[in-house]
Amino acid sequence: MNRTYKITCALTVLTLALAGCAGKTNKAPEVKPNPLPKLTQAKTLVPVFSTNVSATEAADPLRLRLGADQGLIFAIDPKGEVSAFNGKQRVWQKKVAQDSLSAGVEAADGIVVVGTNKGKLLALDQKTGEQKWTAQLTGAILAPSLIHAGRVITVSNDGTVYAHEATTGTQVWTYNLPNVQFSLRGMAAPVPLDARNILIASANAYIYVIDAISGVPKMQRRVAVSDGRSDIQRLVDIDGEPVVAGQFVVTTSYQGQVTVLDLASQQVVWSEDASSIQRPEVVGNGVFVAQSNGKISAYEITTGQPLWENDQLLNRQLSNPVMLGNELVVGDLEGVLHLIDPRNGQIVGRAKTSGEVRTLRVIDNQLYVSTRKGALSIWQNR
Rank of each mutant, 00 (worst) to 15 (best):
L235A: 04
G374N: 06
A205K: 06
D125G: 12
V82E: 11
V258P: 10
I210P: 01
Q267D: 14
W308P: 07
G115Y: 11
P61W: 03
Y208P: 05
K32R: 14
E57N: 11
R65G: 13
P342S: 03
P37Y: 06
W270F: 02
N315S: 15
V357A: 07
T170V: 13
W133I: 01
L199Q: 05
A10M: 02
I73G: 03
S230I: 01
V161D: 02
D231F: 02
M187C: 08
G71L: 07
N117P: 00
V336K: 11
E241H: 04
Q70T: 13
N52F: 11
Q136M: 14
H164I: 01
G286T: 10
E130V: 05
Q266I: 00
K95A: 14
A22H: 14
K32C: 08
D60W: 10
V191Q: 10
S202Y: 03
E300M: 07
L324H: 06
M323F: 06
I213A: 15
A351Q: 05
P61R: 03
I340S: 04
G294P: 04
L18K: 10
L184S: 07
V114C: 12
V172H: 13
Y208R: 02
V114S: 12
V13D: 13
D262Y: 04
L314Y: 02
S83E: 11
H148G: 06
S214C: 07
I147H: 12
K120A: 09
V225W: 15
G240E: 07
W308I: 03
H148N: 02
S214H: 10
V369H: 09
M187L: 03
V114P: 11
A28D: 12
G246A: 09
A195E: 15
A188K: 00
G110C: 09
G240Y: 01
K38V: 12
G87K: 09
D311G: 03
G345S: 04
